[in-house]
Amino acid sequence: MTDYGHDLLFGAFITPAAQQARQVVDLAVTADRAGLDLVSFQDHPYQASYLDTSTLLAFAAARTERVHLNANVTSLPLRPPAVLARAAASLDILSGGRFELGIGAGAFWDGIAAMGGRRLSAAQGVTALREGIEIIREIWDTTAPGEVSYDGQYYSVKGARRGPRPAHDIPIWVGAYKPKMLALTGAVADGWLPSIEYLPRGADSLPELNARIDGAAHDAGRDPAAVRRLMNFMKVQLSSAPRGLLNGPPAAWVDQIVDLALRDGISAFIIGGDDPSITERFGAEIAPAVREVVERERKAGAAARPPRA
């Protein structure tokens, strides 16, 4: 079994549409009231029809009370790591520890270049991300002596001030699909945050991809359970008959999610679709039912589900 034993999280993936700024914030408030654990927004600064994700996260965090927030995922090439670290820590402090850091190496290089960013190859992007994560953790670490100095291949800085220090240990969740990114995730990240639609074979890819992360974690001397496995589901639908993954009646959703949790170790389920009524039912109906079954089965322990064929 591949259950890593994390608490389950349920979240909403909300489109940051600039033309609907008010509805976007309202949807975050709906998710908060529905008892969801996460609200996340994609980060594509070159996409003219989207709001700036960092700004939206801070604004939505101020308008919500309990829900945690994260970028899904931050485009590192346009978010200089020290700036990102300070913004993240600041928001974590203001929100009382409700900020998490989703991050990726960047995609859509034409858009990044058009904004003045640096064009990197996929391999270069992975190294830059590794460096970026190191810098972020350095900035957050206010107990270490002296200022931050870093001399990397893609980033270098001499004497940057440390801090502010986040209110809680902000986990770093990496959006990863390819082997090098999965290796990086296993080696240094606190979580893996892909979208099911982008996995080569959907849920069937999970054993292989999980194994890559686990292997990289082992190699780095880490417990694979140190890496939470999160998942976005962009296309979801509540309908009367089961039609597919998260497309069917609530009971079918519950079965599918429980299966992903116990069989594939997925512990965070983040749904797109921007539909307030689905958001509400996800929080009020589906999440508690999943939690109940998973808790029961975890207690039963031995009855672990066999891995996917």
Partner: peptide, 11 residues
Amino acid sequence: PTDPQAQYPSV
């Protein structure tokens, strides 16, 4: 792009 503290004016 090499300075982790330098923001992009476009952003």
